[in-house]
């Protein structure tokens, strides 16, 4: 349904080009749940923004983003607006930034459908009530007239999800929807996304760096590092036998609440410098299994992993 092919995203800055996303390809099938994980700065959000056509002005994009047989990178603004409103919904990390503080929740919910689907006020209102119920906002009827600041952080995030649901999109891009929230609220929101997904058959792309959430929610995982795909696999397989040293490092670094051994297993080193296009494995400076050839060759994604060494040899 959605397929991203050889996507490159570069930013022109005062200090030269920043290579944020380098040659990323993946696809999302109807009704599936894909997790995109990777550390901060690895290009997760920029991929989502590229799909929505919302990249910053200093960005250069290359590659193809196919959506229902149409390349989103070449579509007109008008068409993109329609797709944004009706087919792909996005949920940002910070709910306050996607809500207008001076508009009631009702107005914000109904505006899009009235505008893009020509729905009547009344029908739009009924739909708004439906989605508010769907995202479990108690006393939805009364709360429709409230302003965003009258809700708690968790409820605002639910309202943003409700907004994404108004047009019954085929795909929801959720960019770290729960990072700012505590675990109880996070559990509610993930449950909610799961219900929506199974009830309406919407596909969900969940961007996160919380592997716990990935394990509980997603079927497939895409692991990014330094703007490149390191590994892609079914969740079960990935957690069972991670095929890439970075994925292994990530899984080991998660603190285990049941068994706190003395030291956490950190990945030494710092995130990569993105001012150069990678010419070698971007993870090489931090990899425990690095061999000389890794510093000279750019590993390509093969059998779901971009590593020059066979799985059996990895620590």
């Amino acid at each position: 349904m959605l397929s991203v092919e050889n996507l490159h995203i570069r930013f022109r800055t005062g200090d030269g080009l920043v290579h944020a996303v380098n040659d990323v390809s993946f696809s999302v099938d109807a009704g599936s749940r894909l997790a995109v994980v990777g550390e901060s700065g690895s290009g997760k959000s920029q991929i989502a923004l590229a799909i929505m056509g919302l990249l910053a002005k200093n960005a250069e994009v290359e590659g193809r983003i196919m959506w229902d047989g149409q390349d989103l990178l070449g579509t007109s603004n008008r068409e993109m607006n329609r797709i944004r409103a009706r087919e792909i919904g996005i949920i940002f990390q910070d709910p306050m930034s996607s809500l207008n503080p001076y508009m009631t929740i009702e107005r914000q919910l109904t505006e899009i459908v009235e505008h893009h689907e020509g729905m009547s006020r009344r029908a739009a209102r009924a739909r708004a009530l439906e989605v508010m119920d769907a995202v479990r906002i108690p006393d939805a009827k009364a709360r429709l007239r409230a302003y965003p600041h009258e809700f708690s952080g968790g409820m605002r995030q639910r309202i943003v999800i409700a907004m994404a649901l108004m047009c019954q999109p085929k795909l929801i891009l959720a960019d770290e929807p729960t990072t700012a929230l505590d675990v109880t609220v996070q559990a509610q929101i993930m449950q909610l996304l799961q219900d929506v997904q199974s009830d309406l058959g919407t596909s969900v792309v969940l961007i996160t760096h919380d592997l716990g959430v990935v394990a509980g929610f997603c079927e497939d995982v895409l692991v990014l590092y330094g703007g490149r795909v390191m590994e892609t696999a079914k969740t079960m397989a990935l957690f069972d036998q991670p095929g890439h040293p970075y994925t292994r490092g990530l899984l080991r670094a998660v603190p285990n609440i049941e068994d706190p051994s003395d030291a956490l297993t950190a990945i030494p080193g710092s995130p990569p410098n993105q001012h150069r296009f990678p010419v070698a494995c971007p993870f090489a400076p931090r990899c425990a299994d690095v061999v000389d050839i890794c510093r000279e060759t750019l590993p390509q994604l093969r059998d779901g992993r971009a590593c020059l060494r066979p799985i059996e040899e990895l620590t």
Binding site: E39, S40, H209, L211, L250, A253, P255, A266, I267, S270
Partner: peptide
């Protein structure tokens, strides 16, 4: 993020 978090905690 997790890999760096572990460094700092340690």
């Amino acid at each position: 993020d997790v890999s760096i978090q572990a460094q700092v905690v340690n």
